Simulated scan of single mutants.
Amino acid sequence: MTSYIMTIPVVPNNAIHPVPGPLYARIRDELRVQIVSGNYQPHQKLPSESELISRYEVSRITVRQALGELEKEGLLFKVAGKGMFVSKPKPFQDLARLQGFAEAMSQHGYEVYNRLVGLNFLPVAAELTQRLGLAKGLPVTELRRVRHLNREPVSFDISYLGSHLGERLAKEDLASRDMFLILENQYGIPLGFADLAIDAVLADAETAELLQIAKDTPILRVERLTHGRDGAPLVLEYLYCRTDNFQFRLRINR
């Protein structure tokens, strides 16, 4: 996969009170605030272009430019012959909490399904062995799953863990159960914390096919090394996530 640096857009604080600038940007920012604040509800129709032209006393080109930018951001969608409508918020997982995918999504009432596409035992994996804190020469288990949310693929997850755990997990129902919950509730291994790294990559042919997107589509890659409560590393994961139907969120305190 080809990596490249991605800047995650953040709505600035001053978007609540738009600053002087191009007319289309001021209209865009004002509409964005109304959408984000809930003044316009999901699937609610926005005022027509003519109404916005009259309200802001601008040209049709200016209104269309503002609406076009909000559509690119995923806040609006167009229905031919009917106008612009507010998009339904994307499902999201809070990265500030160490949870399995199904554990996090079930709290919001979403349907979750995991498709197991590979379970392999790697006899020679020096770097993985080192990162997982295993004795040199011990095999590593590779677990490959496609995570589905409401019957649509959202991520392709590749997990590595010691074979002493992998051999047990191979006998579990990994289609409907979270690995984290199995480790804690069934194996009695309490989780402690995880180290994360996030970047953007272009989907290779295999990942694109599994996620049902075009090859070279930009996706998020999350590297997560989860440790037990005793601090020992347990699971190293690479999560390749679509950006059009799923979000990660994080609250950061000063």
Rank of each mutant, 00 (worst) to 15 (best):
S3G: 09
S3H: 14
T7I: 14
V10K: 09
V10C: 05
V11Y: 05
V11I: 14
P12V: 03
P12D: 02
N14E: 13
A15K: 08
H17E: 11
V19F: 10
V19M: 13
Y24V: 00
D29Y: 07
D29T: 12
E30I: 02
E30R: 09
V33K: 12
S37P: 02
G38S: 05
N39F: 12
Y40Q: 03
Q41N: 05
Q41K: 13
Q41W: 01
P42D: 06
P42A: 06
K45Q: 15
L46V: 05
L46C: 04
L46H: 05
P47S: 06
E51N: 11
E57S: 11
V58N: 04
S59N: 03
R60Y: 06
I61S: 14
I61T: 12
Q65H: 13
A66D: 08
L70W: 00
E73L: 11
G74Y: 03
L75H: 07
L76V: 01
L76H: 00
F77I: 08
K78Y: 14
K78P: 01
V79F: 03
G81H: 12
G83C: 02
M84P: 00
F85T: 01
S87D: 05
S87Q: 08
K88W: 01
K90A: 03
P91K: 00
P91A: 05
F92C: 07
Q93H: 10
D94Q: 09
D94P: 04
A96V: 11
Q99V: 10
E103A: 09
M105K: 02
S106V: 07
Q107P: 00
H108A: 13
E111R: 13
R115D: 14
R115Q: 15
G118Y: 02
G118F: 07
N120H: 09
F121M: 09
F121Y: 10
L122D: 05
L122R: 05
L122A: 01
P123R: 15
P123Y: 12
V124H: 14
V124S: 10
A126Q: 11
E127N: 09
E127P: 00
Q130G: 04
Q130Y: 08
R131A: 15
R131L: 15
R131P: 06
K136S: 12
G137L: 04
L138F: 08
L138C: 06
P139F: 02
P139I: 06
P139G: 03
T141G: 02
T141K: 02
H148M: 14
N150C: 06
N150G: 03
S155P: 07
D157R: 07
S159H: 04
Y160W: 10
S163A: 15
S163F: 06
H164T: 15
G166P: 03
D178Q: 05
M179N: 07
L181S: 11
I182K: 01
N185F: 02
P190F: 00
G192W: 06
F193D: 13
D195I: 12
L196I: 14
L196Q: 14
L196C: 09
I198Y: 04
D204K: 04
L210F: 07
L210R: 14
R221I: 08
E223A: 08
H227A: 11
D230I: 09
G231W: 01
P233F: 04
V235P: 03
L236I: 01
Y240R: 14
Y240G: 01
T243P: 00
Q247A: 14
R251V: 15
N253V: 06
R254D: 09
